[in-house]
Write a protein that binds this DNA or RNA. Structure first.
Length: 730
DNA sequence: ATAGGGTTAG
């Protein structure tokens, strides 16, 4: 039987594949004795537990290289050209081979001073293994697992604990067992048992580690119960207690509880430190109290605390989630200026922030910087990059990232597959999506498509109105056992709307109500979008759906199409509605409603809505003026809204001329690249054809993408000709 | 692994 020992030293814990091994530290070096069993299971015995003794019947020293090559030096930073991973892989690859006959230690071979060679099948080996902290830890870990699984009765818990620990657990045993637990009920019973057996009655550490279990299981009541018990029993809570409780409140979505206990810390003689500040900054951030979060950050800096990347990452996240992206960047710069090195999580948070901000160029810069600093990307990094490039419509970059992931043979998770598919949906990459979907289903990791997966695929087909393809995915989803959710139904309705199958829109809407799904603002936005594409004869049907989903919105839509309703009345109703809907959908609603007006040739009403949107700051700064150029900015506007804005701008320019004002040398319109998910042609293309219909002298700028320009000389006669009464046309 | 804070999706 082949038994191979590999003994080795490496200088850095980072070289140890943490998933497979634990390290035993000897001041500056880590020494392991690996035992490769034929089963390829690798164990090691920390050398400090093994007094050096040479036995005649030991297993063979083998480093995976020819026998005459000396054993790698043990104290060097790089063991003679063999990495730890290589050596381990080599050892297991070689294990079936018959080893050379047992031999005396070769002269010149470097042998670990404190290692012992043992036959792995001997009782001595198993005794050593049992004594090693590794296996003790494993046993305690198993105990945690069985405690999680056992019934929540004192008898069951006591039995499980006593079977492993007898009557003499150490405090360390208790800490390890509780720390690995997840079940709040049995953890509490286990805590009682440890409190009984370990005679330190007021042990704050045991409470703290049990609080962690409450956090893990998101059990706020359990956490607060334990904290109150501590206070009643006179067990002094410390900073660890409070930061655990605060972060527990945070994960339980109870920021006010975090604040409450944070403010009471002082009562118990605790002064916030770096970790409490960081936890609390996060709690304030998540409760939307950005000001308080920043106040704490400033306080922490004023106290000249050594803030670390965790705190900075938290602050960046707080800024990012309140859409203050410059704030996020500033903190990053501040961090670097203070000499704190960004780590993987800092980069991930920052990449995510710049993605949300739709600043793909900054995403690129930061990713390059990350590479330069030798920080390796993980799945979260790739997910952030894919989202950023998808959102910004950067297909080349998004696909490059996909290739990079594949080259690294990175094991993809469901989340990462779904992120890829969502990116494809953003960019309209149907073929790539199908390829990724097939790969996902074949993946050896067994990534089962979930409702996210199907939803993204349906979205891809919905964008182009490919009804039969979308329905095919829907069938596959139902066959896989998933009920349609609001996202799937939103996409489907979008698809039917695009294909002008209004009856199917109604049918899907009915089905949604039957499933007990309540339409949200986003869904209503989708119905409005469908309405703006619906032929006049069928408009009533769609408005019927909207009314059932949201009565106020439905009645506004009814008033909009009714020419008998005065603009003034309509305006009041519209303002009322827009003050009561969520911020994220305001622009989308406005775009749809203005499109509807334009389609129905109700330009006055479109102008009323545009005016309202500017007043409510739904659209910002559509017009700008400098001495050399006046501009119209219609990026992020729908076609109808953009045309309305153009209509208003032209009137304003004509009025300026009438008032004797002079035009600047250049006039420009910025449409942006305008690649919206649901429009196959960009805004620029469609807008340009409308400019031509209007005989407008604007031409695409050769050097500025998304800009149409004209000169004062060309614009003046055109505006004057349009102002003349016999040429009135919108 | 051996008491506390941070990152992946409409």
């Amino acid at each position: 039987m082949a038994s191979i020992h590999v003994s080795f030293t490496c200088s850095s814990p980072a070289a140890v594949p943490s998933a497979s091994f634990s390290s035993h530290q000897d001041r500056h070096h880590h020494t392991f004795l690996f035992t490769s069993f034929p089963s390829s299971q690798i164990l090691y015995i920390p050398f400090s537990l093994s007094p050096w003794r040479k036995k005649s019947k030991t297993a063979l020293i083998h480093d995976g290289r020819p026998a005459h090559v000396p054993f790698p030096p043990l104290r060097g930073p790089h063991p003679a050209g063999v990495s730890l991973q290589d050596a381990v892989a080599q050892a297991s690859a070689d294990s079936p081979a018959e080893p050379q006959a047992p031999q005396e230690q070769r002269p010149g071979a470097t042998v670990p001073k404190n290692s012992i060679w043992v036959n792995p099948n001997s009782p001595r080996a198993s005794r050593l293994q049992q004594q090693s902290s590794e296996s003790r830890y494993a046993r305690l870990g198993q105990l945690s697992g069985s405690l999680d699984a056992c019934g929540p009765s004192e008898a069951d818990v006591t039995e499980a604990l006593a079977a492993v620990l007898r009557d003499k657990p150490s405090e360390q045993d208790a800490v390890v067992v509780l720390n690995n637990m997840e079940n709040p009920e049995t953890a509490l019973l286990a805590l009682r048992w440890f409190q009984e057996k370990i005679r330190i009655k007021k042990d704050v550490i045991l409470y703290n580690v049990t609080l962690k279990v409450m956090r893990k299981s998101r059990n706020w009541d359990g956490a607060e119960f334990l904290l109150k018990e501590m206070l009643e029993r006179g067990v002094g809570p410390d900073n660890v207690t409070f930061s655990t409780v605060i972060s527990c409140a945070r994960v339980c979505n109870l920021p006010e509880k975090a604040v409450q206990w944070f403010e009471r810390m002082q009562e118990f003689g605790c002064k916030p430190d770096d970790v409490t500040y960081s936890a609390m900054i996060d709690a304030y951030g998540r409760s939307g109290n950005v000001d308080m979060a920043m106040k704490l950050y400033d306080q922490a800096r004023a106290e000249k605390r050594n803030l670390d990347p965790v705190t900075f990452s938290t602050v960046i996240k707080v800024y990012s989630s309140s859409n203050n992206f410059d704030g996020a960047l500033n903190v990053y710069e501040e961090m670097k200026a203070l000499g704190v090195k960004p780590n993987l999580i800092t980069y991930n948070t920052l990449l995510d922030a710049m993605g949300r901000a739709s600043r793909p160029w900054q995403v690129k810069t930061i990713y390059r910087e990350m590479e330069t600093n030798g920080v390796l990307p993980n799945r979260a990094t790739y997910a952030a990059l894919l989202r950023a490039y998808g959102k910004a419509r950067y297909p080349e970059d998004a696909l490059r990232i996909y290739r990079e992931m594949k080259e690294k043979v990175m094991e993809l998770t469901v989340v990462l597959y779904n992120t890829l598919l969502a990116m494809c949906a953003d960019l309209g990459l149907a073929d790539e999506a199908v390829e990724i979907f097939e790969e996902m289903k074949k993946s050896p990791e067994g990534c089962k498509p979930d409702s996210w997966t199907f939803s993204s695929l349906i979205t891809i087909y919905s964008c182009s109105g490919q009804v039969s393809e979308a329905e095919g995915i829907l069938d596959e989803m139902l066959a896989a056992g998933f009920e349609p959710n609001i996202f799937v139904l939103t996409s489907l309705i979008q698809c039917y709307g695009k294909a002008k199958q209004v009856d199917n829109v109604e049918r899907t809407f009915d089905r949604m109500l039957e499933l007990g799904i309540t339409p949200d603002d986003r869904f209503c936005g989708c119905l409005l979008n469908v309405l703006s594409q619906t032929p006049k004869e069928e408009v009533e049907k769609v408005i019927g759906c909207i009314s059932r989903a949201n009565e106020t919105l439905g009645s506004l839509a009814k008033q909009l199409i009714d020419e008998k309703v005065a603009d003034e009345i309509f305006k009041v109703k519209a303002e009322e509605l827009f003050k009561n809907i969520s911020k994220e959908v305001k622009k989308a609603y406005c775009n749809c409603l203005i499109d509807l007006c334009v389609n129905l040739n109700m330009m006055e009403r479109a102008c009323v809505l545009l005016d309202m949107a500017l007043k409510l700051e739904i659209y910002s700064a559509l017009q700008s003026k400098s001495s050399s150029q006046w501009s119209l900015h219609v990026r992020s506007l729908s076609l109808g809204a953009a045309l309305t804005a153009l209509h208003v701008w032209m009137k304003d320019l004509s009025r300026a001329l009438e008032n004797g004002e002079d035009l600047p040398p250049l006039l420009g319109i910025n449409t942006g690249h305008g690649k919206h998910r649901y429009s196959e042609k960009g805004l620029a293309t469609v807008f340009e054809s409308h400019l031509r219909e209007l005989n407008a002298p604007f031409h695409e700028a050769p050097d500025k993408v998304g800009w149409f320009l004209t000169t004062k000389v060309a614009a003046k006669p055109w505006l004057e000709s349009r102002s003349s009464p016999n040429m009135a046309a919108a």
